[in-house]
């Protein structure tokens, strides 16, 4: 349940990074104009994660949801920084 919620947050935050011009500039990626249906994933994935943790165990749901958000943010940020470094070294 925790892992699944983490995966949903990773997807949501990954999309958020891909939609954020500042993040794209940092990684020197071209402007990815994602279709609106994909952009909505930024909000839908976290909500799906919340539904799953509530369905699994409502007592711990909020704590797991908030905790996995923090962890996912760190993972996405580190992966994005590594990606930017790799792309920079290739140029």
């Amino acid at each position: 349940m925790l892992i699944l919620c983490l995966v949903f947050w990773l997807l949501g935050l990954g999309l958020q990074a891909a939609c954020e011009p500042k993040m794209l500039r940092f990684a020197r990626l071209p402007d990815l104009t994602l279709p609106p249906s994909v952009r909505w994933g930024r909000f839908i994935f976290p909500l799906l994660g919340l539904v799953i943790v509530f369905w699994s165990n409502p007592v711990v749901a909020i704590f797991v949801w908030a905790g996995t958000f923090s962890l996912a943010a760190v993972i996405v940020a580190i992966v994005w920084a590594s990606l930017a470094r790799v792309l920079e070294s290739r140029r």
Partner: peptide
Amino acid sequence: ISDLLLVR
């Protein structure tokens, strides 16, 4: 929001 995932 914009700097949430930004680490350089």
